[in-house]
């Protein structure tokens, strides 16, 4: 099943794997690489820029952002977010062929520090104490990630 899936994506790869006989770890690494490749293919596809969002799109975005919307909020936000998207659409007109993207404005690059846990500024237990959830053995007890608690 797994080989078939890979075969459909990349025949050459499927061929190689039969030759090398992977162990589990190698399989996981290669599988992850494929997932990344799959996503990068998505990233290179540029969907049309929209300046009007539907209520359904707003519901989807809210879900991605981990927000619930109340009755009627989809329409309200669809209107407001569409107005904002129309406003920022002005940038699409700018010719940026000569410009690199600026991520850090004062020109700093790769600031490193020693990989050392610092407790001089704040103690780990003091940081945990701000949690509204129960603390058990220096860990926060959250609701279950799967199904009901």
């Amino acid at each position: 099943m797994q080989m078939e899936e890979f075969g459909s994506m990349n025949d050459e790869y499927a061929h190689n794997t039969t030759v090398f006989c992977m162990n589990n770890t190698e399989f996981i690494i290669l599988h992850s690489a494929f997932i990344i490749l799959k996503y990068s293919a998505v990233l290179h596809y540029t969907p049309p820029i929209m300046t009007a969002l539907t209520a359904d799109q707003v519901r989807h975005i809210a879900k991605l952002a981990r927000l619930n919307l109340k009755e009627g909020e989809e329409e309200k936000f669809a209107k407001e977010l569409s107005a904002i998207l129309t406003y920022i659409d002005a940038l699409q007109k700018v010719n940026t062929k000569s410009a690199e993207a600026t991520a850090q404005i004062t020109g700093l690059e790769s600031i490193f520090r020693e990989d050392r846990i610092r407790t001089d500024n704040v103690q780990p237990d003091a940081l945990l104490a701000t949690s509204p959830l129960p603390i058990i053995d220096h860990q926060i007890q959250t609701p279950s990630a799967h199904g009901s608690t």
């Binding site: 998505v42 969907p47 820029i49 809210a62 952002a65 927000l67 920022i88 699409q92 940026t96």
Partner: peptide, 26 residues
Amino acid sequence: IMIGTYALSAGYYDAYYRQAQKVRTL
């Protein structure tokens, strides 16, 4: 949060965030 989530979602990053970073350079 929602505008940012939309602008950074798959396919839109280059058109919004990267384009804005380039305009920032200009």
